[in-house]
Amino acid sequence: MSAGMKRFRAHLRELYHGQSAHAVRFRFAVIVVDLALIAFFIATPTIRATAFFLTVDYLVALLLAVDLAARCLAWGSFRSWIRRPIVWVDFFVLLTLLAPQWLFSLAFLRVLRLWTLFHSDFFWQTFGRRFNNTRIEEAARAAATLLTFIFIVTGFVYTSFAGMGVGVDSYLAALYFTVATLTTTGFGDIVLPGDWGMIISIVTMITGITLFVRLAQAIFRPHKVRFDCPRCGLARHEPDAVHCKACGLLLNIPNAES
């Protein structure tokens, strides 16, 4: 590797993982762009027929490809980077952007980018660093998972049933059906046809209830910090724990006062 490439990778590593004011501002900007991309992904079903859609789609693909390449170079080890599930999700999103005409039926899965963003250390060490490993982080992760699921189901319902005369004539109608089903309200004004429609409704209700419970637990249950016990591996402890609850080992959990 040339000296110039080494300097370039070191610069990227500082931008993506450093703690300097310049690096933090850079990551703030990246996160803002990420949120704008997620908004575009959510709006995709409603703007696909517009004249500018393909242009914006390919520009977003280029932006995401550059970001992925930069993250890879900043990570250091390609093998460890490529094994991360979040990276594979981003590659799938990129694939749907590069082939929007052929993979449009899967385009609703682009919103998985919302999940990868809120479950990444990149986000919590930058935008949410003061809330890292706190109750707020747990609640935000759970809320992001729930919102991701809602928009995935909405996109799938809209893509699969729009124009079939079942009431799903707009993206808003698909979102309305998803929320009504997920909360088990069941107004009955929109009913998906056939066995496949019933299966979608059942999965939405069961998964939605589970994610709602997970969000409620993250908000209301006693908070525990993530710290692996060196002896037994127990990963969650009370913030003021002195000994491991499982094996009794003396712990040294970092906190803001230490």
Rank of each mutant, 00 (worst) to 15 (best):
T178D: 00
R84E: 12
R231Y: 07
V213D: 06
A39M: 10
M205S: 12
L106T: 02
F227T: 06
F156W: 10
A10E: 09
H22Y: 15
I253A: 03
W75M: 11
A143R: 00
F156V: 00
F123K: 03
A180S: 15
V203E: 05
A143K: 01
A174W: 02
Q217W: 15
V166R: 13
T134K: 13
L63Q: 12
V56E: 03
F91R: 10
F118E: 00
L175Q: 00
Q217N: 15
L35P: 02
R83W: 14
A144F: 00
A162I: 10
I200E: 06
F53W: 08
R71E: 08
L106I: 05
L250H: 05
Y158R: 09
M5T: 13
T96C: 12
M164A: 14
S201R: 14
L97V: 02
G128S: 02
Q101K: 12
R27H: 01
A65V: 11
F227C: 05
A235N: 11
L249F: 08
F151V: 00
L95D: 07
D169K: 15
L117D: 00
R27Y: 04
T126N: 05
R79Q: 13
F41S: 01
D195C: 14
V60R: 13
D34G: 10
R84T: 07
R231E: 07
P230F: 00
D34A: 12
N255C: 07
T210R: 15
A65H: 10
A107M: 10
G167Y: 03
A51L: 13
H119V: 04
H223P: 07
T116W: 00
A143M: 01
G194D: 07
L64D: 10
A241M: 04
S80Q: 13
W196M: 13
S80G: 11
L15H: 01
A142D: 04
V87K: 06
A142G: 11
A49M: 07
I199Q: 08
F127M: 10
S20H: 14
S258Y: 13
T154Q: 03
I47E: 00
R13E: 13
V225G: 04
C244T: 06
R7V: 07
R135G: 03
N252L: 05
F104T: 08
Y158K: 09
E257N: 15
F52R: 13
F156M: 03
L94F: 02
R135K: 08
A3H: 14
D90I: 05
Y176A: 08
F187Q: 14
L211C: 08
V66F: 11
N133Q: 02
T44W: 15
S160K: 15
R7G: 10
D121L: 09
A23G: 05
N252S: 04
A3D: 14
Q125C: 09
A61L: 03
M164W: 09
R110Y: 04
A174Q: 04
S2P: 04
E257V: 11
Y58H: 09
I82N: 15
M164I: 10
I38Q: 01
H237C: 11
T181S: 11
A241D: 03
Y176G: 12
G194R: 09
V24A: 12
T183W: 01
I38N: 01
D57L: 12
G208E: 05
W81I: 06
T126M: 02
N133E: 02
H11T: 15
R7D: 12
